[in-house]
Write a protein that binds this DNA or RNA. Structure first.
Length: 594
RNA sequence: GGAGUCGUAGCUCAAUCGGUUAGAGCGCCGCCCUGUCACGGCGGAGGUUGCGGGUUCGAGCCCCGUCGACUCCGCCA
């Protein structure tokens, strides 16, 4: 029994009737009848109706007239069951009320600058007064869910023999990947720490250190532009283990996600998730993280256009590109020619698509299309047969290099699904998916060199190592995998290279010479020369995971104190100018102020 | 860096083709009200239409610029 209260505001039930109780919390609403006065008292756990009766307790009742929203109070009284007519079925405590005989106003509140728990309120206002926004049941539920998820993660990995180990926040700058947040060193003027983009190097070094099974709920930092699902600091569920292969990590991760959904929401998810290769995902869905809750798959028409009179498509087909199409079944009545024109502009401006050709077959109408006049009977037949094209449909075309054509159609696919209401119709279905066999290397045309898709320590598929040794870097597969939920990447990982020879071949493929290797990866290479065990792991975005579980549309909704779109904390004002003395200590001169 | 949407009372929004004194709901303040739970009734206060400039007899509305919020592309695994 505490100092301020005996129960929480969600606790009292008819069986407490007749007992004395003291509650503490915030005034949610007041209904003042000038005689009897009702207060909805809110705390973290719920709401209880408090009633003040002037004929029974005049002192308390008199004081209660002055209460306002968000005042903090403590009330004592006797629990009474409500009469049948006054029961509130919408309230967990709606069968009782607390008849107050003593009221203490612990702290008055100013009038709040916005109505709490109104989803239409401007987000910048909510962020400016985040401490008020956090009072709402929605934010409480989100943060409670987040706690349950992290607890489930810890319980799960503990049960699997993993150690939770913290890795440094003041870390070393890395040239690869995202832009680092830098922290100047006072003791070494001119030198900088970097905040970790991920604990990648440390978790591998923990394996060299023989810890065998590591996990961490790890803060990560990336100085890149923000998005609804991207913040400059975010949290990963980071995992690494020794003497494991891809199947071990996949099974471990499936077990973790099962545990998370079960413990946090009481939901059973499948024991095993379906799998798809990267190649298949790109070809069928135009995405490396396909939403498989609905069909709308891409269809290849390259062969059908090899002998077409339509020179644009034939030219692309002949020069190694692909012609692909997507049937937006039933979309014709939903999209006007003007809207389709806008879609084409959108595809061109946002995805550098060369165009977005289409055929619209309005119900009772003809084929309406800017390009169909160039098509012969053979192509038309192929379109009808292969795409099941019928009245009421719109077919979209992508013609480009293999993945580029698919990617544009992949975006169109999602937009079509939105228009057709397929995403809404999928409701709360959970479609987990493993995408495996990611490519090891990607060619950078501008720089005429190859780069690691995941990172340079990612293990090549054993079957592809001979190709790699021959210098054939096209289509090499990595032992790398992503776990996807409803079209959103939850996380990804890989089995790593632990042998010096293989690592040397990898660096050769990346065109990284011995000197550069030493400079960029010296300490890791040295560590690997002292008997590094085979190892691998995975990392999952905790914020995105909780966002999906909470059915929120931004990770800001599942973070207590997020930054806005431009990386500012609207509550504290960070980032801020600092005192000249602070800069002098660091021997830093600011040359330009925005 | 680029594109889009938006910016009117504390909050959410409206304001016809450019035309009288910029409205509504909620909130707030005052009075009334003894069983409400979105309590109810009456009354009231509250506006640099983001900011700057331009066109016009006249601008919340049109034009130019600028600032800010969000979404997306680039960037980021």
């Amino acid at each position: 029994m505490g100092t301020y209260r005996t129960h929480h505001c969600s606790e009292l039930r008819p069986e407490h009737a007749g007992q004395r109780a003291t509650l503490a919390g915030w005034v949610a609403t007041k209904r003042d009848h000038h005689g009897v006065i009702f207060i909805d008292l809110r705390d973290r756990d719920g709401v209880t109706q408090v009633v003040f009766r002037p004929e029974q307790n005049p002192e308390a009742a008199k004081l209660s007239h002055g209460l306002r929203s968000e005042d903090v109070i403590s009330v004592s009284g006797v629990v009474e069951t409500r009469s049948e007519a006054t029961v509130n079925p919408n309230l967990a405590t709606g069968r009782i009320e607390l008849v107050a005989d003593a009221l203490t106003i612990l702290n008055k509140s100013e009038v709040p600058p916005f109505p709490l728990d109104d989803p239409s309120v401007n987000e910048d206002l909510r962020l400016q007064y985040r401490y008020l926004d956090l009072r709402t049941p929605t934010m409480h539920a989100n943060l409670r869910l987040r706690h349950k998820v992290t607890k489930a993660v810890r319980d799960y990995f503990d049960s699997q023999g993993f150690f939770e180990i913290e890795t440094p926040i003041l870390s070393n700058p890395t040239p690869e990947g995202a832009r680092d947040f830098l922290v100047p060193s006072r003791l070494h003027p001119g030198d900088f720490y970097a905040l970790p983009q991920a604990p990648q190097q440390y978790k591998q070094l923990l394996q060299v250190g023989g810890l065998e099974k590591y996990f961490q709920i790890a803060k990560c930092f990336r100085d890149e532009d923000l998005r609804a699902d991207r913040q400059p600091e975010f949290t990963q569920i980071d995992v690494e283990a020794s003497f494991v292969g891809q199947e071990d990590i996949i099974a471990l991760c499936e077990g973790m996600l099962r545990r998370i959904w079960k413990d946090a929401q009481g939901i059973e998810i499948p024991e095993k998730f379906p799998r798809m290769t990267y190649r298949e995902a790109m070809d069928r869905y135009g995405s490396d993280k396909p939403d498989i809750r609905f069909g709308l798959e891409l269809v290849d028409l390259t062969q059908d256009f090899l002998s077409s009179d339509f020179k644009v498509f034939r030219g692309i087909a002949e020069s190694g590109g692909v012609i692909r199409a997507l049937n937006a079944k039933g979309a014709a009545p939903l999209l006007s020619r003007e809207q389709l024109k806008k879609w084409e502009e959108w595809a061109k401006s946002e995805f550098r698509a060369k165009g977005l050709a289409y055929i619209k077959w309005a119900p009772g109408g003809e084929w309406d299309s800017p390009i169909v006049k160039f098509f012969g009977e053979a192509e038309k037949k192929a379109i009808v047969e292969k795409l099941n094209f019928a009245e009421g449909d719109i077919v979209f075309f992508g013609a480009d290099k293999r993945d580029a054509a698919s990617e544009v159609l992949g975006r169109v696919r999602l937009r079509v699904a939105e228009v057709l209401g397929l995403i809404k119709a999928a409701g709360d279905r959970l479609a987990f998916l493993w995408v495996v066999d990611f490519p090891l290397l990607a060619y950078l045309p501008e720089e005429h060199c190859w780069t690691a898709v995941h990172h340079p320590f990612t293990r090549p598929n054993a079957d592809d190592v001979p190709k790699m040794e021959r210098g054939e870097y096209e289509d090499l597969r990595a032992v790398a995998y992503d776990v996807v939920l409803n079209g959103i990447e939850l996380g990804g990982g890989s089995i790593r290279i632990h042998e010096r020879d293989l690592q040397a071949k990898m660096f050769a493929a990346l065109g990284i010479g011995p000197e550069e290797q030493q400079r960029k990866f010296g300490h890791i290479l040295k560590a690997f020369s002292f008997g590094a065990p085979p190892h691998g792991g995975i990392a999952l975005g905790l914020d995105r995971l909780v966002m999906l579980m909470a059915q929120a549309d931004s990770i800001r909704e599942v973070m207590a104190f997020p930054k806005n779109n431009r990386g500012m904390d609207l509550m504290s004002g960070a980032p801020l100018e600092v005192e000249p003395k602070s800069l002098r200590d660091l021997q830093i001169a600011v040359t330009k102020r925005a």
